[in-house]
């Protein structure tokens, strides 16, 4: 009986210990505050006490880790490129000078990822040393930078293939945070993102862009849409103001429960603007099921307003003022 009691006490103790012991990203995080880690790393970086043999010094201990060695399957581990970290400060290019880290691994090194105690800006300063090309020149003004997203939150470099760089897995990485868009792309009418036929970066530059909206790849929404929907570009003889102004006035590009990714159904969609006079000002409550009982009402049956105004994106017909031809 006593033995059972002791076993139970030990079990409870082990359980309590497992609850109360915090998990740390790195060994030094258990003994130092994030501020102390950052100060130490800045000091080490300034002193420049790099290792005597570069990567060989690091790999004396770290070569046992498959994740560390996976670096050599990707471009950051390439020994045959003048642009690779391996052509410069090797492991210490990203992780900072070794200093006394090799004496038990207690001295901090620059660590990356969600568990790093370094803030995103400090982590990213390493990556941005090299990755400052035209695709990333707007990083500082980007939505991700403003939200303190670290490069390592999306990217992995200790791997043969970074998941966010592969079109098969890019959408999965993005939607792990962008959950509203994850829901939208699964609606009945959406761009084919859920099957990875299109990817988020077809329209967005996650590193920031000159665009006024949502870090798009072109300078505004319409120019981005025209990349694929060129027939909507115009100029048209008779234009429809919201079309030339902003495609998302009527469409939700991530997906919608309505046909053609429309934000609402016709005639209500059209009546949001065209409700001041004439036949557009009347309420129409007919059943809008395609081909259903609509009482032969042209306003609610078939394509609703588009039964007559079919050229809603603009018309080049000499008599196309009402976008009917």
């Amino acid at each position: 009986m006593k033995k059972t009691s002791t076993q139970l006490t030990l079990g409870l103790l082990a359980c309590l210990l497992s609850i109360s012991t915090p998990t740390y990203a790195s060994k030094w995080d258990a003994k130092m505050t994030p501020e102390q880690v950052e100060t130490t790393l800045i000091d080490k970086f300034a002193k420049g006490s790099y290792s005597p043999k570069g990567a060989d010094s690091c790999l004396m201990c770290h070569k046992k880790s498959d994740k560390v060695m996976a670096l050599f399957q990707g471009p950051h581990g390439a020994t045959n490129s003048s642009k690779s970290p391996m052509a410069g400060l090797q492991c210490e290019a990203c992780h900072g000078p070794m200093g006394k880290h090799n004496r038990g691994g207690n001295e901090p090194m620059i660590a990356f990822g969600p568990k790093s105690t370094l803030d995103a800006e400090m982590q990213n300063s390493v990556c941005m040393s090299c990755h400052m090309d035209d695709d990333r020149m707007n990083w500082d003004d980007s939505h991700h930078a403003n939200a303190d997203v670290a490069c390592a939150s999306c990217h992995q470099i200790h791997t043969a293939a970074d998941p966010v760089m592969s079109k098969d897995t890019e959408v999965e990485v993005c939607t792990s945070c962008h959950t509203q868009q994850k829901a939208d792309i699964n609606k009945r009418s959406s761009h084919p993102l859920k099957w990875d036929q299109m990817v988020c970066s077809d329209c967005h530059n996650p590193h920031g862009s000159d665009s006024t909206d949502a870090d798009l790849v072109k300078f505004d929404i319409n120019q981005t849409c025209y990349s694929c929907h060129a027939e909507k570009r115009g100029p048209k003889l008779w234009e429809h103001a919201p079309v030339t102004e902003n495609c998302v006035t009527c469409h939700n590009p991530h997906g919608s429960v309505n046909d053609a990714m429309l934000k609402a159904r016709a005639p209500q969609l059209c009546q949001q603007c065209h409700a001041s006079d004439g036949h557009a000002s009347n309420p129409y409550f007919g059943n809008t099921n395609m081909g259903g009982q609509v009482n032969n009402n042209a306003f609610t049956g078939g394509r609703s307003c588009l039964n007559c105004h079919s050229q809603v994106h603009g018309s080049n017909h000499p008599s196309g003022k009402l976008l009917q031809r």
Partner: peptide, 17 residues
Amino acid sequence: NTSKVKFDKWVCKACKA
């Protein structure tokens, strides 16, 4: 600060690209 780095000894024998 790379003033103290002896790059000629950084041969990276263990790097298995």
